[in-house]
Simulated assay, not measured.
Amino acid sequence: MTSVGSEISAEAQQVSVRAGRVLRVGPLKPSLMESLSSNYDALVLPDGDERGAFLALHGESITAAVTSGRTGVDAELMDHLPNLGAIVHFGVGYDTTDVDAARARGIGVSNTPDVLTDCVADIAVGLVLDTVRQLSFSDRYVREGRWVAEGNTPLTRQVTGKRVGIIGLGRIGTAIADRLSGFRCPISYHNRNEIEGSPYTYASTPQALAGGVDILIVAASGGAGTKHLVDSDVLDALGPQGYLINVARGSVVDEEALVSYLSDGRLAGAGLDVFADEPRVPETLLGLDNVVLLPHVGSGTIETRAAMQALTLENLDQFLADGTLTTPVTR
């Protein structure tokens, strides 16, 4: 039987754990890094040979880690943080964090959903327009003096009325679909499960989805479960008149296959905001005029990044106050 004294002791211990140190893992938005340093006295996880000594000295004192989808917290790092209670992500992505390992250890994981939905959906539509109408290519064509020297650019295809498939009809995928409905685009989608009541057409596999659309948009979450979900079979189904747009994670697409299909004309074009090994982009893509390349800027607006920072700190503050998270990852 547990005594009152031991109950109080356990409660005091939990408060003490939550009141431990905050650790920053990886680079973040400069103003967020400054806030973590000045307002939370956060420690910064070093790289290289210094990491072992740092964790030996500070590991037990750390109760919350703040990171991003670019860096994350793996199971090995968790092993060195025995009192870690929360992993707080700046951004919607968390595929670089071992969520299963965190859950097994009782560590909460949060991200910043909703606040970046509109901006990522906007950039997806921008990539559709740019890729299909070849806006970036046409801009380069004018700047390089080719309009004068070579005449008009080749004709492109219209976006209005094109059949659009979306892999991942979550918050962002739905916002993309809403926008492209305004272009009178028939929308279909693939999720792990069909969404009851959705106005859009469900496809049971990515390959089946790709075979019935002109433009395939990837908006699925990253992680082991979606790695290379868009493979050569899907690209074959999309075909030489099809366009691929990726605003999700580079890992969702077999990048090597994609480069091959774009190089030899088995795809009409691609608009990419994400890559498999950022910030490195396959050299071949740099020379292709049918590809639009962005440096992972889907959420890169002043308004959205400020909202992401605010929600990150709200999650951190709530955990430090009562051990819960504002927007926990529930999968």
Rank of each mutant, 00 (worst) to 15 (best):
A219M: 08
L55P: 14
A237Q: 05
G222S: 02
L238T: 01
V159F: 03
P82D: 03
V15A: 14
A121F: 14
S31E: 14
E278R: 07
R18P: 10
V88R: 00
R103L: 05
V291I: 06
L285G: 06
A175P: 04
A270T: 07
T174Q: 14
D322C: 10
D264T: 04
A276G: 09
E303D: 13
V17F: 11
G151F: 09
Y40P: 02
S251E: 15
D236W: 09
A53C: 04
R21E: 15
L32P: 11
V142P: 06
G168F: 04
E303T: 03
D47L: 11
K162Y: 04
D139V: 12
D74G: 01
T156V: 13
D47K: 13
R21T: 14
S6M: 04
I195K: 15
Y200R: 02
P328V: 05
A175D: 07
D231S: 10
I166V: 08
I195W: 04
L28W: 05
Y189R: 06
P30R: 12
V281T: 14
G52W: 03
V88I: 09
D139K: 11
R140A: 15
Q318F: 00
D95F: 12
G265V: 02
G170D: 04
V253R: 11
N246M: 10
E194R: 15
V259M: 09
L116D: 02
N39A: 14
A121H: 05
V73W: 04
R70N: 15
A102W: 07
R192G: 13
T67W: 08
A104G: 05
E314F: 00
G52F: 06
T304P: 06
S31A: 14
N152P: 08
R163Q: 12
S35Y: 12
A270N: 11
K162V: 03
D79N: 13
D47H: 11
G93K: 05
T304F: 01
I215G: 01
G126N: 06
P295D: 07
A248M: 15
V274W: 13
A56Y: 07
S260P: 04
G108V: 07
F137G: 04
V92K: 01
N152R: 13
K162G: 03
G250N: 09
P30Y: 08
G265H: 03
H89C: 02
P113M: 07
E7W: 12
L127D: 02
D95I: 12
Q158Y: 05
H190D: 07
A56K: 05
H89T: 01
Q207A: 14
L81Y: 03
V247Q: 11
R184I: 06
L28K: 06
L216V: 02
V291K: 00
S260I: 05
S37F: 08
A12K: 13
D317P: 00
V115G: 01
T326A: 15
L45D: 12
D130P: 09
L36T: 10
A102K: 05
V259A: 12
G5V: 14
K162N: 01
P295S: 09
R105Y: 06
H89F: 03
V22N: 06
